[in-house]
């Protein structure tokens, strides 16, 4: 039974780590979260395997056989040592996971030395993006452009109902709530185009509230920004 359990756990963990669960990994935060997921897989699989193996063994070994219709099992009422173990062991695992998750949370929330702010406004059923310019009119677009390797703080607002600003490739999401300004930060690591998805039911057009986030290299982003500023000025 132990052998079956160990082998099944090893296969389960290997499978869990081999499967590509997530969409493209396009931010430093995504890397942290994906690693946390792998750790959770490693901690979870043996627990599930344990339950399955015990149930399976009980079904095979202890099922009622013909002639045992009136037989009872032994009157075992408990076992203090066992009960202490299965209270303490999960507690230790839980404490470990919670501390690790807390660390990950601190890391992904950490404010770097330089940061660019993008104001994101949700409304039924579209997103608008504003790039505040020091001493000038902000640049407004409805396509998100961000430079690679630059930490970006999104300030998230809503003008009507609750929306949720989510780029799956960046992993982080936050509700856009009328009346308050939420925020989160990400640092894009890969150029490319990624889906923006509204993740909070916001009405009939909720499933169509999708746009695109473009991660550009620094040079191309700067060029885009200059073009936008000119467009705003003219």
């Amino acid at each position: 039974m132990v052998v079956v359990g160990v082998i099944a756990s090893a296969i389960g963990i290997a499978l869990g780590l081999w499967i590509d669960w997530f969409p493209a990994q396009a931010s430093t935060q995504a890397k942290e979260i994906d690693t946390l997921w792998d750790v959770l897989i490693i901690a979870s699989v043996p627990v599930f395997v344990l339950v399955m193996v015990v149930v399976g063994t009980a079904i095979i070994k202890f099922r009622q056989r013909p002639g045992e219709e009136l037989k009872d099992g032994p009157p075992t009422h408990g076992n203090t040592r066992l009960e202490v173990i299965w209270t303490a062991l999960p507690a230790i695992i839980i404490v470990g996971l919670v501390i690790y998750a807390w660390q990950v949370l601190e890391t992904i929330d950490k404010k770097p030395s330089s940061e660019m702010v993008v104001v994101v406004t949700g409304q039924q059923f579209t997103w608008t993006f504003e790039y505040p310019q020091p001493g000038g009119k902000p640049v407004r677009t409805n396509q998100l452009y961000v430079p690679q390797g630059q930490s970006i703080e999104f300030k998230i607002k809503s003008v009507d109902v609750i929306h949720d600003f989510w780029v799956p490739a960046f992993r982080i999401k936050m509700d856009a709530v009328p009346g308050i300004t939420g925020s989160y930060r990400i640092t894009p690591t890969r150029t490319g185009d990624y889906a923006i998805v509204c993740a909070e039911l916001c009405g009939l057009g909720h499933s169509t509230m999708r746009q695109t986030a473009h991660v550009l290299s620094r040079e191309r982003f700067d060029a885009w920004m200059v073009a936008q500023q000119k467009g705003a000025a003219s």
Partner: peptide, 11 residues
Amino acid sequence: VMLAMIPVTIY
């Protein structure tokens, strides 16, 4: 338990 872990739930 996975969902209790804040960074996972954020995703």
